[in-house]
Simulated scan of single mutants.
Amino acid sequence: MDQQDTTRAAAVAATGPRRLAHATERFDGPTTLYRMYDQADRLLYIGITCNTSQRWDSHRALSPWWPLVARKELTVYPDRRAALVAETAAIGAEAPSYNVSSNPRAGRRDVHLVLKGERAKALADLARAEHLSISRFVMKLVDTALAQAAGDPDMDEALRRVRVTTQKGGRR
């Protein structure tokens, strides 16, 4: 094993295997920084992309905050590096509600769950029947389950672990 292989092996041991770069990380052309706002003009999310329509599709499918978006603000940078620097600074200064990375409010833990098909439809129907957003309905379900489980030693231990994890915060 030569010196370069030894160095690479030490780096992998210390940091884990290198992940494959996302396609946009290899793109070095014009890159858009976007801000998403709700109807009350509260900042929901800041991100960057080289393909806005593909990114909107991704957010639409995966981001729990997407239905809240009422307005988008776009700024185009000459390359990905410039957009990334601007994104990091903006998230740190503006603290959007749903960003985790570089966000001073990121000590919280968010749960992201993707439901598809009949489960998604059933959850949406139940939330609508309660006149609640899906997020608020899920929080109501969790609160009800926690109240019913109070005093259960197994549940108490699980909740203690969740509280410890939540207090530690950090990235998902």
Rank of each mutant, 00 (worst) to 15 (best):
D2I: 08
Q3N: 00
D5E: 04
T6V: 04
T7L: 12
A10K: 10
A10L: 10
A11I: 07
A11D: 08
V12H: 09
A13I: 00
A13W: 00
A14E: 07
P17V: 08
R18G: 04
R19F: 03
R19K: 11
T24E: 13
T24R: 10
E25S: 03
E25Y: 00
D28C: 11
D28P: 05
G29P: 08
T31Y: 13
Y34V: 03
Y37C: 02
D38K: 01
D38E: 02
Q39Y: 02
Q39F: 03
Q39V: 01
R42K: 00
R42F: 01
Y45H: 07
Y45I: 01
I46A: 04
G47I: 08
C50Y: 10
T52N: 09
S53G: 12
S53Y: 12
R55N: 07
D57P: 00
S58Q: 11
R60Y: 02
R60I: 00
A61C: 04
S63Y: 05
S63Q: 09
P64W: 03
P64A: 11
P67N: 10
V69E: 01
V69A: 03
K72G: 07
T75H: 14
Y77D: 10
Y77P: 13
D79K: 06
D79A: 07
A82G: 15
A82V: 14
A83W: 14
A83I: 15
E87Q: 15
A89S: 15
A90Y: 14
I91K: 12
I91D: 06
A93F: 03
A95D: 01
A95P: 00
V100P: 01
S101W: 07
S101V: 11
S102Y: 15
N103D: 06
P104T: 02
R108G: 08
R108C: 07
R108E: 05
H112S: 11
H112N: 13
L113E: 03
V114D: 03
L115V: 09
K116G: 04
R119M: 07
R119S: 09
K121E: 12
K121N: 10
A124Y: 06
D125S: 13
D125N: 13
D125F: 06
A127N: 04
R128L: 08
R128M: 05
R128T: 03
A129P: 01
L132W: 01
S133P: 09
I134E: 13
S135L: 02
S135V: 09
F137H: 15
M139C: 04
K140F: 02
L141P: 02
V142C: 12
A145D: 13
A145K: 15
L146M: 11
A147S: 15
A149L: 13
A149I: 04
A150E: 14
A150R: 15
E157I: 09
L159M: 15
L159A: 09
R161Q: 14
R163N: 07
T165G: 08
T166C: 02
K168P: 00
K168E: 06
R171N: 09
R171W: 04
R172D: 14
